[in-house]
Each structure stands twice: as structure tokens, then as C-alpha cells.
Design a protein around this nucleic acid. Structure first.
Lengths: 112, 112
DNA sequence: CCTCATAGGTAGTAACGCTATATCGGGCCT
DNA sequence: AGGCCCGATATAGCGTTACTACCTATGAGG
């Protein structure tokens, strides 16, 4: 998949992955890769800054913990994060429908 | 629609709009707006640089003409542009399917 | 011991689309 | 005639975004 294709949609994917429960950064990356059958395989250099950004925006909250003697930063969705995810989903639907249609180059169906 | 959502998918939309026949820049913008019922309404400052970029990449070719005493640059798809459009369509399908699925947070269907 | 997978992170970069602004011709209104 | 809006083209500068390339560290397996 083209690398730059994600632009503007990454946040929603990360939020959706965290919706089912808290995960640490690497687990988010792995979950997304598995759920999409390898189609979306984000480099770690994309995931961690994005999570920091989302945390800074208050959409997720991270906490340091320890598992197997290793420190891990586990993130969970905040209230604002849940709301943002809804918005991302709606926005994606609208966007995807519009692009799919435009790529077909047919007139938009009448909505009376 | 969120402004930055387009990133990475603009080229395909422009190429698709030019598929039905040559158009000048402003007409591309208008056609895209009408075909999507106003959902994709690109600012001219987005359209013109993008067309220049596509021309530089050899995907479209532009020619100056005159209509109503005014100079207009009309673009048409090149061979490479037709090929690129096919690629963009396939890429979009793949991408849209993956994102739609990931946003639902369900396991990817088995593909045996 | 060394490598690999796991895990977290930063710096720097390039691309992309946006805002803002400028220009020009023609038509419309006063 | 003068002023204004619309159609049409264009550029400069900006902020965001995701990427590549690195760095650090630990536990497991060869």
C-alpha cells in the first residue's frame, strides 16, 4: 500500500484499535497489522509520535507500567477519544463514499 | 469534510475527472464539486499546483488555448496518466477496504 | 555470545494540501 | 464611465503529517 496514503486517517485507525481496550504502543501496531491482514503495517517511527500527538490532544491517556521487568506505556481511550473516534468514523464514511464515487466519474445520485 | 483528509488521494481524483475528456483547471474543480454534490470542493490553490505536479510527472499534458479572448490551459490524460489512474483506483480500493475494516475493529476475513 | 523479536523513542526530512494573495478579462449594475 | 463580482490562472508561505533512519534496552533462542 502506498505509504503516504494514510495521511489524515491515521488517528482514527489508532483510536479504533484502542477502542476494545488499553494497549501499549507496539501492541497497537501489531493489532492493526493483524486486523488488516498485513495491509496496514505501520513503522514504529510512525506509531509512537502519533500516540504522543493523540495523548497531547487528550484523546488517549498513557500510563507507565511494568510487565516482565520491562517498562511499558499503556494507552487507553479518554472520553474525548471516544467522541473523536465517532467523528473519525463518520468523516471516513463521508470521505470514502465521495472518493469512491468521484473515481467512478459518474454524477452524484439525486437526494430529494 | 475535513480539509486534510484528501492527502495522498488527490491525484487520482483529478485524473479521474480528466478521464472523460480534456478540461481546463477551473473546470476540473467545478466538475469534481458537482459530481460529488459539493462534498469535494477544492480550493484553486490546491488544484493548480496539483495539476502542475501531474504535468511534471507526465500523467497529464497541458496546452494553452484561447476561449472568449482568454488564455486557458487545457489538460488531457496521457498514456501514463491512464495507467496511473488504474493504479490509483486499485490502490484506493485496497486502502478503503482496509481502513473501513480497521475502523470496525473486527478480524480480517480469512482468504484461503 | 550473538542475534532476533519485542518495546520505546528521537531527529530530520519530504510531501502535501491549505490559506492568502495577486492578476486579468468580461459582464453587470448604478 | 466607474466600480464590482465572477471566472480563471497562478504563486508564496505555512503547518501538518507520516516517513526514513537511527538509537536504546531487554528477554529468548541459537
Amino acid at each position: 500500500m502506498r505509504a503516504e496514503a494514510l495521511k489524515g486517517h491515521l488517528d482514527g485507525l489508532l483510536l479504533a484499535t484502542l477502542e476494545d481496550g488499553p494497549l501499549h504502543g507496539y501492541a497497537v501496531k501489531e493489532a492493526l497489522r493483524e486486523v488488516t491482514g498485513g495491509r496496514i503495517d505501520l513503522p514504529t517511527g510512525t506509531v509512537y509520535p502519533a500516540l504522543h500527538r493523540l495523548e497531547g490532544a487528550g484523546l488517549i491517556s498513557g500510563a507507565w507500567g511494568v510487565a516482565n521487568g520491562r517498562r511499558r506505556r499503556t494507552y487507553r481511550l479518554t472520553e474525548a477519544g471516544h467522541a473523536a473516534l465517532s467523528g473519525e468514523r463518520a468523516g471516513w464514511q463521508e470521505f470514502a463514499t465521495a472518493v469512491t464515487f468521484a473515481l467512478k466519474a459518474r454524477p452524484w445520485p439525486a437526494t430529494p
